[in-house]
């Protein structure tokens, strides 16, 4: 036993450090600084930029599930697609205001997340993986067959979106879309960051690490999983709505397994369970895809496959995992 008097100052420092462990760090401003700088330096790529921001939001919502709550899924496109179709169907049927479109998309996707989560989250592991996949496949088939509303395999056409706040018109160059998607991503990031730093978010990490133990300390594990599944679905829905509104097009691909899988790859490249993995993996993947598609459209998947093998062998934990290990190694929080 050491003397309490000698320990006391240390203890206070430890308590302070622990209480402040979720304080903003200056590095967290980097993605936003980069996004603003890119607006001025890459004027011809605003449309791509808007897509990237919307997809980052999508990946962020997936990170909440896989990285924090430990819920693995291969059907997250279900909620992206529900959001995209909800916003698209509204816009194609006389309701053109974009912000309320986002809200409706979030609600629709949230409801879809809650309803399917209440069923599929009873399982785990490979069964869960299969169930999430099936939910997305069912919705995709629904969209395919319900042509009068969704346009079926032709996609939903004829969307019309009003200017944001009645002022900022969506232009061909994607200038408005760039700022619009960036602003929504920023709000989504704030909400997600807040959530994972909250006691609720910490308990999700506990569930990921050891669900049985969380039950033994009195946590309603199943309820918490459904709550985060619903929140994540709503965020994915907003992401889908952003892409629908800024491209004025929704197709069956929005609900596809490919969409879910690609998203997972992007998140893995960036790093899972570190909040900023989405901000690294998505731009890397989408910019590379854009460049490769221009140079070698046929072989694109060969290169990404090669890259993934490399990533799996040499860069476990993604880009952020590698950085964390070089700096003395902290596991995902």
């Amino acid at each position: 036993m050491t003397a309490p008097a000698a320990d006391a100052p240390d203890r206070k420092a430890d308590i302070d450090a622990f209480a402040r462990r979720h304080k903003f760090r200056w590095t967290e401003a980097l993605p936003w600084a980069a996004a603003i700088a890119c607006y001025f330096t890459f004027e011809n790529y605003h449309a791509l930029g808007a897509q990237i921001f919307a997809t980052i939001l999508f990946a962020l919502s997936l990170d909440l599930l896989i990285g924090y709550a430990g819920i693995i899924t291969l059907g997250h496109a279900a909620f992206f697609g529900v959001g995209a179709y909800a916003a698209g169907i509204m816009a194609a049927n006389g309701f053109h205001e974009p912000l309320s479109g986002l809200v409706i998309a979030a609600l629709a996707a949230g409801i879809a997340g809650f309803a399917s989560g209440a069923i599929v989250l009873r399982t785990s592991g490979l069964t869960l993986l299969m169930q999430t996949l099936v939910v997305a496949a069912l919705l995709q088939e629904l969209a395919n067959k319900w042509t009068s509303v969704t346009g079926g395999s032709d996609g939903l056409l004829g969307m019309k979106i009003d200017p944001v706040f009645g002022v900022f018109r969506f232009d061909l160059f994607g200038n408005t879309a760039y700022i619009y998607c960036l602003a929504v991503l920023f709000l989504g990031w704030l909400a997600a960051r807040n959530l994972i730093c909250s006691p609720f978010g910490r308990s999700l990490t506990g569930i990921r690490e050891n669900a049985a133990r969380m039950r033994a300390i009195g946590a309603p594990v199943e309820r918490r999983k459904i709550i985060i599944y619903t929140i994540s679905a709503a965020l994915a829905g907003v992401s889908g709505a952003l892409i629908a509104q800024t491209t004025a097009l929704v197709g069956l691909g929005a609900l596809s397994l490919g969409r879910s899988g690609e998203l997972l790859i992007m998140l893995i490249i960036g790093g899972i369970g570190r909040l900023y993995g989405a901000f690294i993996g998505v731009p890397l993947y989408m910019i590379a895809q854009d460049r490769f598609a221009a140079v070698d459209p046929v072989f694109w998947y060969f290169w990404i496959g090669l890259f993934m093998i490399f990533d799996g062998v040499f860069a476990r934990g993604g880009a952020l995992g590698v950085i964390a290990r070089r700096r003395g190694g902290s596991p995902p929080q």
Binding site: C197, P199, F200, T205
Partner: peptide, 30 residues
Amino acid sequence: LFKRLTVLENVTLAIAEREGTANDILRPAG
């Protein structure tokens, strides 16, 4: 235990469950 988390985090997770604060989604745990 939650092996990758700190000793302190393990214990605060239990306290947060007892107090019911683990349902708080808005304020930082700190």
